[in-house]
């Protein structure tokens, strides 16, 4: 698949008289292929929003290259009609209705007025379209923001923290919506700190830390790459079991053992000592664990250090 977004060696340093210099992006790379739902993960202050803002022409990068649909981001205006985006939650004017909010955007962007109702229907706000935005819940405002990005039928949708403020039902709706858009051929780039959301909805992911990419690739491959053969075991004497199993620790009365290639070895080892298992569960790696591993010391990239720490997972 051809890349819809290509970012290479992106650098940005913010300079302020009051706060001094802050390196936001330190040679960041990212690639998003057409038709993917791509997750963009990173701790607060890692450079996610700066990346998105630079990509959308809101922030001027110091160096590096960015291309959207093969066009340099310097000519973003020529592809803007193909891109829908929300960058952090816009604060809508409270006394405007949802429909009026979108209608003003549609008017400014030359989008036919009928798209307003269609888009509000897509995000489930058609019934509340005439109500003032101040009467909307946080989740509804978030859906209105997504609607504003969908208004021009984008081929690329960039969403910064779209699940913020959504309740579980809202998250489910958002997931369904994004999946539907992806199925219709829309490429979606989502920045989020809700790892479980990313894990459930994204095909590929890029993790950023200290302004640099630390890992990227398919979600499944990244998780598989961090599968340490981990199992949870419950027995009558967990301390004894932990000693017998070697690379193991006791957590909440259960033994968590790592580096196991065949779980039969656990039953055999413990059974030989008369310890009978009441539970044997595989502990699958999740994105949260991978995220924490990759974005906490000592693996985080240090300013000025070579970029070889970056991991590409393609399996």
């Amino acid at each position: 698949m051809s890349p819809v977004i290509e970012i290479s060696g992106l650098r940005k340093t913010f300079r302020s008289l009051r706060r001094g210099e802050k390196v936001a992006l330190d040679g960041f790379d990212m690639e998003v292929s057409a038709g993917q739902v791509h997750g963009f993960l990173g701790p607060n202050g890692s450079g996610k929003t700066t990346t998105l803002r630079a990509l959308l022409g809101l922030v001027r990068a110091d160096s590096g290259s960015m291309r959207i649909f093969g066009v340099s981001s310097r000519d973003y205006a020529s592809v803007a009609h193909r891109v829908g985006a929300i960058v952090e939650s816009p604060q809508f004017f409270g006394n405007f209705s949802g429909a009026k909010t979108l209608r003003l955007l549609a008017m400014a962007g030359g989008v036919p007025d009928e798209r307003v109702l269609q888009t509000l229907t897509t995000v489930g706000l058609a019934d509340r379209r005439s109500d003032p935005v101040k009467s909307y819940s946080l989740g509804m405002k978030q859906r209105l923001a997504v609607a504003s990005a969908l208004l021009k039928r984008p081929e690329l949708l960039i969403l910064d923290e779209p699940a913020n403020g959504l309740d579980p039902a809202g998250m489910h709706e958002m997931r369904t919506l994004l999946r539907g858009l992806a199925a219709a051929g829309v490429t979606v780039l989502i920045s989020s700190h809700l790892l479980s959301e990313i894990e459930q909805v994204c095909d590929t992911v890029t993790i950023i830390s200290h302004g640099r990419r630390v890992v990227h690739g398919p979600v499944g491959a990244i998780l598989a790459g961090h599968d340490e053969g981990c199992y949870r075991v419950r027995v009558a004497d967990p301390d004894l079991a932990a000693r017998l199993l070697g690379d193991a620790r006791v957590e909440d009365g259960a033994v968590v053992v790592s580096g196991v290639t065949d779980p039969a070895w656990i039953t055999e080892t413990l059974g030989r000592q008369g310890l009978w298992l009441t539970e044997l569960t595989r502990v699958a790696p999740d994105l949260e664990r991978v995220f924490l591993d990759l974005t906490s010391a000592p693996q985080v990239p240090q300013p000025g250090a070579p970029r070889e720490i970056e991991l590409e997972v393609t399996r």
Partner: peptide, 16 residues
């Protein structure tokens, strides 16, 4: 208020 609320940013995403 447009600059403070992000309304201007939102508009620039439409008309860069």
């Amino acid at each position: 208020s447009e600059l403070h609320s992000g309304g201007m940013t939102n508009l620039l995403l439409w008309r860069p």
